[in-house]
Structure formats: structure tokens, C-alpha cells
Design a protein around this nucleic acid. Sequence first.
DNA 1: CAGAATCTTGTATGAGCGTACAAAAATCTT
DNA 2: AAGATTTTTGTACGCTCATACAAGATTCTG
Lengths: 206, 206
Amino acid sequence: MATHGKRTKIEDIRRIELIAAAHRVFLEHGLHGMTSARICREAGMSPGILAYYFKGKDEVLFGMVRYNNRLLMEDVIARLKAARTGWERLEAIVEGNFPASAFTQPIANAWLSVCAEAGVNPQYARLQRLFYRRLRSNLASVFEEMAAESRLREAGFIIAALIDGLWLRKAAADDLGRDEAIALVFGGIRSLMTNGEEQRLRHPEG
Amino acid sequence: MATHGKRTKIEDIRRIELIAAAHRVFLEHGLHGMTSARICREAGMSPGILAYYFKGKDEVLFGMVRYNNRLLMEDVIARLKAARTGWERLEAIVEGNFPASAFTQPIANAWLSVCAEAGVNPQYARLQRLFYRRLRSNLASVFEEMAAESRLREAGFIIAALIDGLWLRKAAADDLGRDEAIALVFGGIRSLMTNGEEQRLRHPEG
DNA sequence: CAGAATCTTGTATGAGCGTACAAAAATCTT
DNA sequence: AAGATTTTTGTACGCTCATACAAGATTCTG
């Protein structure tokens, strides 16, 4: 306290508190249920406070997405740094796509609500890109690094879609857990990587 | 006109017209953009007409989903009847999951908006189940029929998730066409079905 | 055609939302 | 402590939406 370096300003504190509250509300009620009033109540503040610290609700929204991405990425970045083999990198990224305590139905739904709104509101489309590329682009890069054949780039495409599909299923049916989801992804990876070009399914036309 | 058998009542006509209009609005504007006023305008009627023929907006919504499922199923059912081999059945179902002129970004988004709302509103959850199982259950049955090994049931799970993931990607990035999507699914099917149990990816732990 | 039944319109009402803002409370400055 | 500044509150306005409803238009019936 002897230092007279800049103390953390109240403005920053409040902004972070509000964004964290917005994040909690978002995960519980989805994008549509994330109202200004609810955010303020969740943060234990008065309804009007939001307009004082933010230009509008959109600013809170974008801040919330950045906050969310930071939370998601922290774990993965640490594991990626420690990873030595390509396989370890792949493991880190795949498991990072299913965060330990975040693969739940409400969160899957919240995530989907952003995707859904992106089609109508172009501003949400930017937001969507941030969400969509959380860890996906890393996945693609590792995949290409592990095997640069053009055929395996298709495989990366398939695995990315598989991961999304499992989240979608989590949101819709909620009939699988985190470990099962990860096992399915690695099952898909195994099949795709051990398969040669020449193999074909028996097929009437062939 | 000589017959005095029941003529199609106006009530039925209007209900169908309104549901069809609701369907068009839904595909263009998503669930959230499907307002009563827009539905009536799309149907060329007065704003208040909806309350006369339906108990509420929910009734229109459910009718719209049934209408949608009927449209989707008609083509598939016809192809399934004509199919002789298991492969043909599989083709019919997979391609039925990507209807010729319906694999578009707006439609993908509209579909997602139902999934997203299902997590918050329990009434939409029922709706979601109808949507989700459109063709999925058929897929599973054909998969199990073609090869009843328990390992391939997992494969059916993966393929179903893959299909959903491709729709999600369509909504989010819109960077693939119908043919590419179908090709990717069959690529996944090929890999999964030609792979034996014993094969494993080289892995430090193994 | 007259009267009844049905269908359609346009508008009104109330709820929920984002946002603006005046006033109150708290904090800082001298 | 007194005034200035920052922070917080509570409320009010304008907007969009679902729904209800009175009044008008149309069709049916005798």
C-alpha cells in the first residue's frame, strides 16, 4: 500500500462485476433471458447502474463473451504449453472443447442461443465468430500439423462438426455426459485417422 | 357441387393458410422474429385474425412444427418405400437430413432458435423433441439394422451428431453447401464402418 | 330481401424490455 | 466541516409484442 501506483479504479471493478453477473445470467437464462434488470439484480445493484458504466446492453454482451472466452481458454493454453507431442496437443484441445464443469444443458443452450441470433442480427454474427472459434481453429491447426494430407483436412472438418453436434445434442436431449462425449470424439478421430483412402464401403454402385 | 358431402370448412382453410404463413416467417426470421403481426401480414390478413382461429400463438407454433415435419418426411418416406437395400435406405435418410432447397443459413438458424429456446421454456422442449427426432431415429434404426454390433450403435450416435454439427456450422459460418455436407457425412460413415475394433491410433500411453 | 350467423378488421390494453435522467447518497478535496 | 465530485438509486418514457374485443363486412337462411 506504500506504492502510489494507480489503484484499481471503481469503474473497472464495477464493470467486471457486472460482466461476471451478466455471464451467470446468460448461462442460466440464455441470450434472450439476459435482461438488463436481471443482470443488475444478479450483481446486487440497482437497475439503472448498467447505463452508467456501459454505453448500452451490447457493450455488456461483448464484454461477457470476451470474459467467457478467457475462462475457456485459460485451461487449454496452460495444457498446450505443457504439451510435448502432437497427441497431447490434440488431447488438450478436444478436452478443452468440453470444459469439466461446463458441459451442461443450460450452458449448451446458452451457447446455441448466440448461434441462433447470429443469423438475424449481424452484430451477433461477429459475436458468433468469437464463440465459434474458441478452440475450433486450434483443433484444425493441430490436425493439419499432425498430418498434412489433404484428406485429413477433411477429417478435421468432420471432427469439428462432430464436437458441435455433441453440444447440440447436449442442449436438445441432455442424454450424454462429458466423458462419453470425449470418448465419442476420440472414437471418431481414431476411425478417421486409421482409415486409408482405398477403403470403401460395399456399395451397389461400386 | 351436386354432392352435399362436407365441403372444406373455411376454418380449416384459414388455419392452414396461417400455419403455412407462420412457417415461411419462421424460416426467414427465426423463432424470435416470428411475431403474430408478421404472420398475419404474410398471410395477407388482418393482425387480429390469429386470435380468432387459434387459442394463442403457441397453438400456431405447434401447428407450424407439425407442418414442417410433414414436409420434411414426405420425401423421405417416399424414398424409403422405394428403397430395396439397406444402403438405399441409408442414402434416403442422410440426404433427407439435408433437404435439397432447405440447407440454407436462414433455415439452419431458424432450426437452432428452437433448440436454444428449449432450454429455457419447457414447452419448447417438447417441440424440440419433435424437431430433433425428425429423421434421426430413422437413421439409428437403419444403422442398427445394417450391422447390429454394439460398436456400430456408437457409430450411429456419431453420425447423428455429425449431421447436427454440419447444420450448426451452416448456421454459424455458412461455408459449405449441401453436396459437401452430404459428402462429409458419407466420408464419416465410410470411416466408421470400415474400421475394426482392434485398430488403435498410435498413442504414448498405449 | 331481412335477419341471423359467420367471418374479418382495426384498435386498445397491458406486460416486458432497453435506456435516459433527476435526485439521493457516498466519497473525495481543501 | 463544507463544498465539489463521483457513484448509486428509483423511476419514467418509448418501444414492441401477444392478446382481447367492439364494430364492420360478408355469407348463409328462410
